[in-house]
Simulated scan of single mutants.
Amino acid sequence: MRALTAAALIALAATPALAEEVGRVGVDWTGNDIVIEAIEDPKVQGVTCHVSYFDRSIFDRLKQGNWFEDPSNASIACRQTGPITLGDIARGPKGEKVFSESRSLIFKSLRVTRIYDEDHQTLIYLTHANQVVEGSAKMSISTVPLYGAK
């Protein structure tokens, strides 16, 4: 039983972060919204990212077609929200996925990737759409300096 519990805890720690909706702003009369979510980095204590993205209404989906997909546009801002403690993070130039959320039925997701710039002691957070076909060039980055982080 202990081995099963330990395995479950390890699997939970390895999963990407969960987002918490902290704001929603209506942008038109059809019900389209801009959603703002808070994402705490699961491997870097003391860093929280806020991601904003467009959420299409049912009326907009009926009018525009393309029922199963939201736009790729997103913005990100990450800040130190407590003492920073680096966990076991990826240190290579490709970084590590922190968060992923579906933006279509199966082919597109919104992702947050963390890249560690060791030379400049900075964490770089990139938000972008990941698509099976025709990747999007729409992206946003935010940086968090590691002044004396552990």
Rank of each mutant, 00 (worst) to 15 (best):
Q45K: 15
G23S: 12
I76D: 01
V27M: 00
I76N: 01
V51W: 14
A13C: 09
T81S: 15
P42L: 05
K63Q: 06
Q80C: 01
S104G: 14
W29S: 07
E37K: 03
A149Y: 01
A11G: 11
E101N: 08
V144R: 04
T122C: 01
I106G: 00
I76C: 00
T48H: 04
I141K: 06
A149S: 14
S136G: 03
I89K: 04
V47W: 06
A3W: 05
A38T: 09
F68N: 12
I36K: 07
E69G: 09
H50N: 09
D119V: 10
K63V: 11
G148D: 10
Q80T: 14
K150F: 01
E21W: 03
H120P: 00
M139W: 04
Y125R: 03
A3M: 09
S57R: 02
H50V: 07
A74Q: 10
I84Q: 06
R79V: 12
C49V: 06
V132T: 11
L86F: 07
F59K: 14
P145E: 00
I34T: 07
N32Q: 00
I84E: 07
Y147G: 10
H120R: 11
L4A: 14
N130T: 11
G65N: 06
S142P: 08
P71Q: 03
G65L: 02
N32H: 00
R114M: 07
L9H: 13
D88F: 10
C78P: 06
F107L: 08
V133N: 07
Y147M: 11
Y147W: 06
F107G: 15
F68G: 10
Y116Q: 03
T5L: 13
R91H: 05
L110Y: 11
A74I: 03
H50F: 12
L105Y: 12
H128T: 01
A7R: 12
T81K: 10
E37A: 10
G95F: 11
P83W: 09
S104A: 13
I58A: 09
T81I: 04
I115A: 06
Y147I: 08
I115T: 09
E37G: 08
A13W: 07
E40D: 15
V44K: 04
M139I: 14
I34R: 02
L146Y: 02
R111Y: 05
M139R: 06
E101W: 15
A6M: 05
T48A: 04
L126G: 04
G92F: 07
A14V: 12
E69T: 12
I89W: 13
A90P: 07
S109A: 11
A14F: 12
S72Q: 09
F68C: 11
Q45G: 05
V51M: 08
S109K: 09
G87W: 04
I89Q: 08
Q45M: 04
S102M: 15
R111M: 15
A3Y: 03
S100H: 14
S142Y: 05
G65H: 02
V132C: 01
D119H: 08
L86C: 11
Y125G: 01
P71E: 02
I10A: 14
A17N: 10
L12P: 04
A129R: 01
D88W: 01
A6N: 11
P71I: 01
S52F: 10
V98D: 06
A6V: 12
F68T: 14
L18G: 14
I10E: 14
G135Y: 05
K63M: 13
S57V: 00
L110N: 08
